[in-house]
């Protein structure tokens, strides 16, 4: 089941890269976070780690429900353009994405020998990190860049739960608070963009 969820995690992230409409991008991000939340829940139940189960639930509440909702309302409120055409042509992206997926595996191969558990998941989480960076690079608009950063955060969360079986609870909660603060700052920046 975890394998399937990780497959969906990567698939939704790739979909983010090819999307040209903003609401659809938010939707893919929400699904990406939902997959992540379920992965945390499954691994949490598997290893009987209550901290990871809480993190999974929080991921679903905050990243699947709350953040996409807030981003959508910010988009409406500040009339952000919803047509988001990437700078990178789709056919280039079609080539670059598999290259990233395959080469990341070879790039991190030496690391994988040093990871005690879930080595393949680590490779996938690192490739999803690169894909999120690609999302930031390929767009000029601010909104996709925000989703790119949030996707990086998702990839790092996946890396943390796969490579280390979760970080200490306090750290995970702190990261959630940081993500929320990120959204607050984004809101403020949009709100006062006409102040000058």
């Amino acid at each position: 089941m975890i394998d399937i969820l990780i497959g969906f995690f990567i698939a939704t992230l790739i979909s983010e890269l090819f999307t040209t409409r903003l609401y659809r991008l938010y939707g893919w991000y929400a699904f990406n976070s939902l997959c992540l939340g379920f992965i945390a829940l499954f691994i949490g139940f598997k290893v009987s780690d209550s901290a990871m189960i809480i993190n999974g639930i929080l991921t679903i509440i905050i990243k699947f429900l709350f953040i996409p909702f807030v981003l959508k309302s910010i988009t409406v409120k500040f009339n952000i353009p919803r047509n988001i055409v990437p700078n990178l042509k789709i056919y280039y992206s079609t080539i670059i994405v598999p290259i990233i997926l395959v080469f990341t595996y070879y790039l991190v191969n030496p690391i994988l020998h040093n990871i005690a558990y879930n080595a393949n998941y680590v490779a996938l989480s690192i490739s999803s990190l690169f894909l999120s960076l690609l999302l930031i690079i390929e767009h000029k608009n601010v909104a996709p860049k925000i989703i790119g950063f949030l996707s990086i955060e998702n990839s790092l969360f996946l890396l943390a739960i796969s490579a280390t079986k979760g970080m200490p609870m306090l750290v995970e909660l702190g990261i959630f608070v940081d993500v929320l603060m990120f959204i607050v700052i984004v809101n403020i920046l949009f709100k006062y963009q006409g102040d000058y």
Binding site: V171, M181, I185, L189
Partner: peptide, 16 residues
């Protein structure tokens, strides 16, 4: 982790 959280707080607050 706590070191990172503090740094992230500082980074985000600097934006404004």
């Amino acid at each position: 982790g706590l070191f990172w959280i503090g740094l992230e707080f500082a980074t985000l607050s600097t934006v404004y």
